[in-house]
Design a protein around this nucleic acid. Structure first.
Length: 757
DNA sequence: GAGAGTGATATGCCT
DNA sequence: TATCACTCTC
């Protein structure tokens, strides 16, 4: 025990040893949040306050859940079995499998990922003859997910006008279609579980009695449905231990509601609020920079990080004349660091949007420095893997129309659009799934479709007794996928990815505790009821979702869930020591010795789409805060006067955030850099910025004395950059980017502009 | 049914 | 600018 609590600072210790009541832990960046969370669990168990199966720990990502499990098992002599640690979606999946009947789902229901969902919506709109110009599939998807995230079914949504009424109808139709096919989207996993628990009292009480302690990671990222889900699971017995950082809330755009933190405090009458403000990650100047910046936000719960590490190096700021030179500077600087012994993997280059990575990648590539870009395509999202998965899905659930359509003619087997149209008509006419409607299609189309059905049937028969990995092998061959890609000229990688699926299945079966001989198909074996089950109103007893996985779902169903819920690593191929490139969003939760924050320009960071409302700018500021706090020892920030974006050169002002940083922690590296557009030194421009297109170099300068790219000051709008000049002489007018005041068109002979020295 | 051509479109992205 | 989804053509 002493061991366990050893080395905790007073705040951490206080948090870990709080009584069994609701608690809100404000955990700053680098303050040992995960440590507190895991130690709390270990402490609760070791002091005998709760049995492992009384613990429910919820995270957002699989990575976080794994990390937590890993740390716990190294911390505790007893195993972590019995505890529920997982993502919201993973836990809901488990509950829904165990209670699929009560939830109104088939045992083998399947999970749609976002792309499946979108194609499903497109298909539906086409079938309903809806104008997809007027109702873009993507918008409908956001509409549906947004509603579900609020806990609203179609019948709960208020539709004020015709357009929304139609959206609601489509939402309803979509839900029905999902139900017919036995598929659920991500939001549905949560909503369905929420509804199940609200409706079914014995079930609810069973789990409420069981989970005495509910711990939530990244609480600031919860949406309203997740918040209510937690409330429901806690009932009035469970103690909720919520850990989060309002200053790191950067996912409002996908429904996260920071307001849940203060709502939690009030609604749960939280008596225990603890702030973890001791930072173990960053040097002083870096931390000061973060603190001073975030203090500009008005809506905060209030928190200030401190460190025992010294000031360290100042935060270095670099200005360049073009994005190309910015990239070059990063490389020069990184080279020096590497020469001084820095690990490449400890150098991260962060940017606000993905489009910015290209220039940097190019420069790194030319310089021969290994690098990794985060955020690429993940394993289970690859087209060939999705197709293989679709065959498996179809075999597990013949009514999954999405899976059917994906593979019915892939590899091609002569089933064209016309045949499918007939099939879809037949399916609609008889209210059947596509698969079931095949016998209703006559003629040639019927024959070729029948052949496909035979293929699926015979493969099912052939694999009925096989274990999952063997089944995958058979399916890969029988489907013709392997052969198809073997004959394609660039198909070698794809064949390899497909073969990888067998490994993935093997690993999965072993890790999840299915016997490795367990037939993939076998439905759940009924687990012995030892009074541990849940007794329903009618006296019948059902499984606790805690029953061993094989009792809850077949290996195949489990594997398919896994493929949807964990699409795989988001990281580029691992391997050698390489520099790390990623967006600020994906850097959350990571840390590096050296961090470059690039593209700090008005319109980019803060992003122009966020500038309209104050809430948007505050979120951008939090994003900047996240970026800064990733750095341990060295932090660089850079911006560029010009940048190529969408094929156009943009002239940006430096980010407003610079004005919010503490000057004493900064070191401006390039005060001497002459802007290439300096009126009196056009020559220097060519030396500094060879990449800038001629139009930008003031070729259009007229006798009005102003040129494109020049910085100006306006009495009312402040500092700006001339982006374009129309006309000449007395009629000259200039488009000027005034950053937060936006783009203005000013008459040069009237507007009182001053040059920036 | 594959490949060329077109045109829209371009924050952030976990499950 | 570059990508992607989708349509058109042979």
């Amino acid at each position: 025990m002493q061991n366990l609590l050893h080395n905790l600072n007073p705040e951490q210790l206080a948090a870990v040893t709080l009584p069994a009541q609701h608690a809100l832990i404000l955990a700053g960046a680098g303050s040992g949040k995960t440590r507190v969370l895991t130690t709390r669990i270990a402490w609760l168990i070791q002091t005998g306050q709760v049995a492992p199966n009384g613990i429910l720990a919820v995270t957002f990502t699989n990575k976080a859940a794994k990390e937590m499990t890993l740390r716990l098992s190294s911390m505790m002599p007893t195993s972590t079995r019995g505890m529920w640690i997982g993502t919201f979606h993973g836990l809901c999946n488990r509950l829904l499998r165990a209670h699929h009947r009560d939830a109104g789902l088939p045992q083998t229901f399947q999970i749609l990922d976002s792309s499946d969902q979108l194609s499903m919506i497109k298909r539906m709109l086409k079938a309903l003859n809806v104008d997809d110009e007027k109702f873009p599939p993507r918008n409908l998807m956001y509409f549906i997910n947004g509603a579900k995230d609020q806990g609203l079914r179609a019948s709960d949504v208020d539709a004020s006008d015709d357009y929304n009424r139609r959206m609601v109808e489509l939402y309803d139709y979509y839900d029905n279609q999902c139900q017919r096919e036995g598929v659920v989207d991500f939001a549905e996993l949560l909503l369905r579980t929420y509804e199940l628990m609200s409706r079914n009292q014995p079930l609810r009480e069973h789990y409420q009695a069981r989970f005495k302690h509910i711990l939530v990671d990244e609480f600031q990222d919860t949406n309203n449905l997740q918040y209510n889900w937690l409330k429901l699971m806690a009932g009035n017995r469970g103690a909720v231990f919520a850990v989060g950082d309002d200053d790191q809330s950067i996912y409002a755009f996908r429904g996260a509601n920071v307001g849940n933190m203060s709502a939690f405090e009030h609604e749960f009458n939280v008596q225990n609020l603890i702030k973890l403000e001791q930072n173990y990650r960053s040097h002083g100047h870096i931390l000061d920079t973060a603190n001073v910046l975030i203090a500009n936000n008005t809506k905060r719960l209030g928190k200030n990080l401190r460190t025992d590490a010294g000031h360290g190096e100042p935060v270095r700021i670099h200005e360049s004349t073009s994005d190309l030179l910015e990239a070059q500077w990063i490389i020069d600087e990184a080279k020096n660091l590497i020469a001084d012994g820095a690990l490449r993997s400890e150098i991260a280059v962060l940017y606000r949007s993905n489009a910015q990575s290209r220039v940097i990648e190019h420069a790194l590539f030319s310089a021969g420095i290994p690098y990794k870009v985060y955020g690429g395509q993940r394993y289970f999202e690859r087209a060939e893997v999705k197709s293989a998965i679709a065959y498996l899905q179809l075999m597990d659930n013949l009514h999954n129309d999405s899976a059917f359509l994906r593979v019915v003619n892939f590899p091609t087997r002569g089933i064209g659009a016309r045949s499918l149209e007939q099939l879809q008509d037949a399916a609609r006419a008889h209210n059947l799934s596509l698969y079931a409607a095949v016998p209703h299609v006559a003629g040639k189309a019927g024959t070729s479709l029948g052949a496909f059905v035979n293929l699926i049937e015979s493969t099912r028969f052939e694999t009925a007794q096989l274990a999952l990995p063997e089944m995958v092998i058979v399916v890969l061959a029988a489907s013709g996928l392997i052969t198809h890609y073997q004959h394609e000229k660039e198909g070698a990688d794809r064949v390899e990815n497909l073969e990888q699926l067998v490994n993935a299945a093997t690993v999965f079966v072993n890790e999840e505790g299915f016997g490795h001989d367990a037939p993939a198909f076998l439905g759940p074996q009924s687990a012995p009821m030892s009074g541990a089950g849940i007794v329903l109103d009618d006296g019948s007893e059902i499984l606790d979702a805690d029953a061993p996985l094989p009792a809850v779902m077949s290996p195949l169903s489990a594997f398919l869930s896994h493929a949807s819920l964990e699409a795989g690593d988001n990281q580029a191929t691992a391997g050698q020591d390489a520099m790390q490139l990623m967006t600020v969003h994906s850097a959350k939760g990571l840390e590096f010795d050296t961090v470059f924050i690039t593209g700090l320009e008005e319109g980019l960071f803060p992003h122009e789409n966020a500038q309209k409302e104050e809430a948007g700018v505050e979120e951008e500021r939090r994003l900047m805060y996240v970026a800064i706090t990733r750095a341990r020892q060295r932090l660089y920030m850079s911006f560029s006067q010009t940048r190529m974006l969408h094929g156009q050169t943009r002239y940006n002002l430096k980010s407003r955030f610079f004005a919010e940083l503490p000057e004493e922690s900064l070191k401006w590296l390039s005060p001497q850099v002459q802007p290439f557009y300096r009126y009196d030194s056009p020559k220097a421009a060519w030396v500094d910025a060879p990449a800038v297109p001629s139009a930008a170099l003031g070729m259009r300068v007229k006798d009005n004395g102003w040129r494109i790219g020049e910085s100006v000051v306006h009495a009312k709008f402040g500092e700006g950059v001339i982006v374009n000049i129309e006309g000449g002489g007395m009629n000259a007018r200039a488009h000027i980017n005034f950053g937060r005041h936006g783009m203005k068109l000013l008459d040069l002979s009237i507007a009182k502009l001053e040059k920036v020295a």
